[in-house]
Computed example of a mutant assay.
Amino acid sequence: MVRRLLGSQMQPLEQNQRENIFHTKCSINGKLCSLIVDGGSCTNLASSRLVSKLNLKTNPHPRPYKLQWLSEDGEMMVSQQVEVCFSIRRYNDKVLCDEVAMEASHILLRKPWQYDTKAIHDRFTNKISFKHNDQKIIFKKLSPK
């Protein structure tokens, strides 16, 4: 029993990066918001809560679709899009997102953003780097605090 307890102790943060997603904070209309970069599916997402709280203008989605993996409540219809202007320190960007009801983050940047910026996610250090206006930009993950 003691051997099992000792084996399950917390690993140092560097050894735990394998399972970590990239999570940071950004600013949208002067408000601090959470942002996740994940190389998963082919659409950027913005939370309905973010859209309503910041009174962001939505537009009808050109090709509405059903999404199931994001919610335990079953399928949800994605029928609205929103253009979100955000900044992380000196980096500013505007990204088109599908509006969805999600609690994980305010913005979930996926393959389209990574492709457009040519971002590289170093999963070992959990940093994202890319060039913007001939300057190298590096996003570092949030500290555990």
Rank of each mutant, 00 (worst) to 15 (best):
S47R: 12
V78M: 03
N16M: 11
E14V: 12
Q17M: 15
C42R: 14
L70I: 15
S71H: 03
F139M: 02
T58C: 15
S87A: 13
P12I: 04
H61M: 10
K66T: 12
P112H: 00
V51T: 13
H121I: 07
F139H: 04
L70Q: 02
V78S: 05
S27A: 07
S71F: 03
Q11W: 14
T24E: 05
C97I: 03
I120P: 00
G7P: 02
H132D: 15
F130Q: 05
D98V: 08
T117R: 07
I88S: 09
S52T: 10
P12Y: 09
S8C: 13
S34C: 02
R89V: 09
E103F: 01
E19W: 06
I128W: 08
I36K: 00
Q68M: 13
N20C: 13
I138A: 02
S71V: 09
L32G: 01
R110K: 03
L54K: 09
R90K: 14
K131C: 07
K145N: 09
I128F: 08
C33L: 07
W69M: 04
Q68W: 11
N133V: 06
Q68F: 14
A46L: 04
Y65T: 01
Y115M: 01
Q135V: 10
H23N: 08
C97Q: 04
S48T: 15
S41Y: 13
D38Y: 10
S27M: 15
P60E: 15
T58W: 04
E72F: 07
H132S: 14
P64M: 06
L5D: 07
L32S: 11
T43I: 12
K127D: 14
L50G: 02
K136F: 01
G7S: 12
F130H: 10
V100K: 05
K53S: 13
P144F: 05
R3C: 13
K111D: 00
P144Q: 03
T125L: 10
E83L: 11
G30W: 03
E75W: 11
L54W: 09
R110F: 01
V84N: 09
V51E: 04
I128M: 10
E14W: 04
V82T: 06
C33E: 06
M76E: 07
I128A: 06
F124H: 12
M1Y: 03
G40N: 10
